[in-house]
């Protein structure tokens, strides 16, 4: 996998939303028609045929176009897509919380070029049969990618709508073959202070490497995904390249970036923000408008991008609007206590 530094991206290479949207429409129409003929397994490589960029040597591009199945029309799916307006690519890739690069929202994009994400490998260990160190290429080999349009709700009360490309975490977990002792899945972000300047800060109370975790049921839920791209291209470093977790019904900090380790464990793991400020960040961190964070009211959110004269404030929905799909994971649980 060839990923060059994002600073090399000429702006002309970035897919504009309008171009992207028209391409999406094309793909959806095509997918609809071809699904009948091909039984639903349609790769979008064909969709790039109408793009002049496809004639270029795509492997050289910092953000490579990916082959994936386009998101299905909203009516056909269960939370896998939404008709809400997409947050522009520029906003998705320039306003990030990725404290490994600094705490300012602009820091991740600013310093992303300092991180080398190729080669990349992921350690899978713990209570599973198929453990070991896997090269990213091997991990992704034969893994079909699909597009999903999810809402992303940050604990800081802002949100975005992002077209991710990736696959269900469950498919990776199945390949790892966890045993019956595996009750939680723990994820770790890369720790490489020489390339991630936020990790060099002496006065940071977050412990590195960044750790997040899910219950097995949450990890196996079809909505839980591993993203390797967004807007049809491989992930920019600031968004968690080369692979990250996306759990759309939880606050964004659960969706750990730049994963190097996946571990199956028996006991609930200590997770970074929860350890740093347990009163503020729970292990579950399900989006819940009724449980306020001490710093931010969670009753509403600002859908980015905002403007000075329109804060785009909208009501926050329980489980970020995915209650229908995921509320049953928490039946009988006091969500105020287990926030």
């Amino acid at each position: 996998m060839l990923i060059k530094r994002p600073s090399d991206i000429p702006s002309s290479e970035i897919t504009s939303e309008s171009h992207y949207l028209s391409r999406r429409k094309f793909m959806q129409a095509f997918a609809g028609a071809a699904a009948v003929a091909a039984g639903g397994s349609v790769l979008s490589s064909c969709a790039d045929a109408e793009s002049p960029a496809s004639s270029r040597q795509i492997a050289e591009l910092p953000s490579r176009p990916l082959d994936f199945v386009a998101a299905q029309p909203v009516s056909d799916n269960n939370g896998f897509s939404t008709s809400e307006k997409l947050t522009p690519y520029e906003a998705v890739t320039s306003h990030n919380n990725f404290y490994e690069f600094g705490t300012d929202k602009r820091d991740p994009k600013r310093y992303a070029g300092e991180l080398q994400t190729d080669p990349w490998s992921v350690v899978i260990e713990g209570e599973a049969d198929n453990t070991g160190t896997f090269f990213l290429e091997d991990l992704l080999k034969n893994q079909p990618l699909e597009e999903r349009i999810y809402r992303l709700r940050c604990v800081e009360a802002w949100s975005m709508v992002i077209p991710w490309v990736g696959f269900s975490l469950s498919s990776l977990i199945k390949r790892a073959q966890p045993n019956s002792s595996a009750r939680y899945v723990v994820f770790e972000t890369l720790y490489r202070p020489e390339q991630m300047r936020g990790q060099r800060s002496r006065f940071n109370t977050l412990e590195w490497p960044y750790v997040e975790g899910l219950t097995m049921a949450e990890a196996m839920h079809p909505l839980t995904m591993i993203a390797t791209g967004l807007y049809g291209k491989s992930l920019p470093v600031q968004n968690g390249a080369p692979l990250r977790l996306v759990v759309p019904w939880k606050y964004g900090f659960k969706s750990i970036k730049s994963i190097v380790k996946i571990k199956f464990v028996n006991a609930r793991p200590s997770t970074s923000w929860n350890v740093s400020a347990p009163r503020e960040y729970g292990f579950f961190a399900n989006v819940n408008p009724k449980v306020d964070h001490p710093r931010w009211s969670q009753a509403s959110e600002r859908r980015l991008p905002t403007s000075l004269f329109d804060s785009k404030r909208i009501a926050t929905l329980p489980f970020n609007g995915y209650a229908e799909q995921v509320a049953n994971l928490y039946t009988g649980m006091d969500l105020r206590r287990y926030f």
Partner: peptide, 15 residues
């Protein structure tokens, strides 16, 4: 920056 819309996706917060 405000006039040129160069304050990023969350201009109020930036200001």
């Amino acid at each position: 920056a405000a006039i040129g819309q160069a304050l990023g996706p969350d201009p109020a917060e930036a200001l």
